[in-house]
Amino acid sequence: MPSMNPDAQMPRKPPVFTQEQIDDLVAYYEEEIGVAGPPVPEGVPGNMPRRAEYGDEESYEEAKAEYEEAVGAYVQGADDTAAGEKLYLTNCAHCHGWSGGGGALTGGNFAPDLREASPRQFYEAMVTGPGAMPYFNDETITPDEKQDLIAHFLTLENEPNAGGIFALNRVGQVAEGFIGWTVGLSLIVACAIWITAKQRAHD
């Protein structure tokens, strides 16, 4: 924010406003325009502390440790991450990918990468449906189920990436296969050009 081009989907960027400014903005909006959205899920760990909001290194480190502890407790508090996986796979994975890397939609829109999102951002996205994303309110997916779902995703994140030196940022098997196929085929075509070059030089 602010958006540079209102027609294009906004990429994820570091926030410019402080939390206090954002709160003021929301308060103004609710006061003047009055259409309040779903409440902020206060019980879900919020955003990663930003260095700029803390005076000294020590208090920042402290806030960060506190945040990480809160996320850990939130993940631990989930009843059934297997059920969360099922919900993730049936409702989220088509757009955001099995591993949350995101993907293309129609008309230049895209489903963003989820791997930088905090648990609260996850939750808020489900209940507010940013951009073209449909809503998943607390009745269709209950808060407990949302916790399972988020916990599943955060656990998945901690799985080691076995991509080796050619890791493709976990874009998924189909995309990886496509890349392997195009790169491999290009090399084969280059070899074929080299092998037949002498003959073609005469033809």
């Binding site: 919900l87 409702n91 449909p134 998943f136 269709t140």
Partner: peptide, 23 residues
């Protein structure tokens, strides 16, 4: 039921939010 749960869905679960979706 919402896929992945065994909880029956009611029409009002989707009531207030045009744009909602669930498998």
């Amino acid at each position: 039921v919402a896929e992945g749960t065994h909880r029956r869905l009611r029409a009002e679960d989707l009531e207030n939010e045009p744009g909602g979706m669930i498998s």
